[in-house]
Design a protein around this nucleic acid. Structure first.
Lengths: 191, 191
DNA sequence: GGACCCATGTAAATAGTTACATGATTCT
DNA sequence: AGAATCATGTAACTATTTACATGGGTCC
C-alpha cells in the first residue's frame, strides 16, 4: 500500500537516482508546485518504500557525519508507478485559504479587502513570471521523455496562475467600485 | 488560536445560526469546493470555538436521541473573522494527484493515459456544468451581501474548471498525436 | 422491513508540520 | 567567526480520515 507521497518519490527516482536530501529539494522545487513534503516525512517514506521493494539504495561518499544513501527505482517500483499513473485519481479535497477568505469578504471594508487582493495579485504575478521564464528555455519535449512530465505540469501551473490573476482582477474591480475613495489600480501587466 | 477550519465554520455562522449537522452539510456542499471537513472534525471544533468565546449554542428541539445544538456567532467571533479575512494567506502547499500523475505520464502508453485523461475531462466538464447552472439563477450581488461570498467563490470555481479543461484537452491532443491508433476525441463542448 | 436522511458524538489511525539533534564544508 | 548549504535522522504535535456507536423519522 503505497501512499501518494510514495508515488511522488517514485516519480522522481524514475528519472534518476537521488539521495533523500535531493528528493527533499525536488519536493520543494519542481514537484513542490503540486506535491510538497518535508524531509521529516521523506526519510521514513524512503525506508518504507525500500521494505516494500519499490526502491533500493547504495551508500555513497559524501560530507556530513552520516552515510549518504543514493536511492534508485527497482523494476517493481517502476511497475507500480506505471499502473498508478493511469488509474483515475479519487476526488480530491480542495483547500484554498484565499477562497475561504473570499467567502467572508462581504463582512469587511472593501478598501481593506482590495489591499489584501492586490498583495495576492503580486504574488501570483511573480509566480506566473517565474513559470514563463522556465518555458522560454525549453521547447516541447516528446511525450515519452521525462521532460514531458515537467513540461505538462509547468503548462498546468501557467494556466492556473492566469486563471487566478483574472479572478483576482475581477474581484479587485468589484471591491473598488464599492469604495467611495478609489484605491490604486494594479499597474503590472504580466498576464 | 483559531484553526483554518474554525474560520470556515465562523464564515458559515456569520450568515445564519446552524447546528453541527448543518455546518457539516455546508462543508460538504457549497464551501466544500474550497474547504472540506468531516463531522468528526466539526463537532470538536465547534466545542473549541465555544470555549474560546467565538460561538455560543442554544439547545433546540429536534429528532434523534441527543439534544440538537444551534450555534451562532458571538461579537468576538465576528471580530476575529473580520480581521482574519484581510490578513494575507500564508503560502499554501498545493496538492494535486492529477498533476502528480502527469509528472510521470511519460512512463506509460499514451493510449492508456489518454483514456484516463478523457475520464478526468468528463468529471471536470460535469463540475463546470453544475457551477454554470448555479450562476444562471442569480445575478451579481452587492459586495456587502453574504451572497457575494458565494458568488465570488463560484466564479473562481468556474474559472478553475475552465482552466483544467483547457489543460486536459491540450494534454489529450499531445497523447493522441503520439499514438499510432487514434483514440476517440472528446465530444462534449461545455467550455 | 429496509434504505436513507436526520443528528451527535468518540476512537483509532494516518498524514503532515514543527521542533530537536548532529556535524562537515564552503562562502563572506 | 558566523551564516548558508549539504546531509540524515527522531520526537512531538496538529490536522484529517475512517471506523465505531446510537437511535428516531420518513419513504417505498
Amino acid at each position: 500500500m503505497t501512499s501518494t507521497l510514495g508515488y511522488a518519490i517514485l516519480g522522481l527516482l524514475a528519472r534518476e537516482p537521488r539521495t533523500g536530501y535531493e528528493v527533499s529539494r525536488a519536493l520543494d522545487h519542481p514537484v513542490g508546485y503540486f506535491w510538497t513534503a518535508r524531509h521529516s516525512q521523506i526519510y521514513p517514506e524512503l525506508a518504507r518504500l525500500e521494505t516494500s521493494g519499490m526502491v533500493r539504495h547504495r551508500v555513497v561518499a559524501g560530507p556530513g557525519p552520516r552515510a549518504n544513501k543514493r536511492y534508485s527505482l527497482t523494476a517493481k517500483g517502476r511497475r507500480e508507478l506505471r499502473s498508478w499513473v493511469t488509474t483515475p485519481p479519487a476526488p480530491e479535497p480542495s483547500r484554498s485559504e484565499l477562497l475561504l477568505r473570499a467567502y467572508s469578504i462581504w463582512l469587511v471594508d472593501p478598501g481593506a479587502a482590495a489591499t489584501m487582493i492586490r498583495g495576492e495579485r503580486e504574488k501570483h504575478a511573480a509566480q506566473l513570471a517565474g513559470y514563463l521564464k522556465m518555458t522560454k528555455s525549453v521547447d516541447e519535449p516528446s511525450v515519452d521523455s521525462p521532460r514531458f512530465g515537467n513540461y505538462a505540469t509547468l503548462r498546468a501551473g501557467i494556466g492556473y496562475e492566469r486563471h487566478v490573476l483574472r479572478w483576482l482582477d475581477w474581484l479587485h474591480d468589484r471591491l473598488c467600485e464599492a469604495t467611495p475613495e478609489p484605491a490604486a489600480a494594479p499597474e503590472s501587466e504580466t498576464t
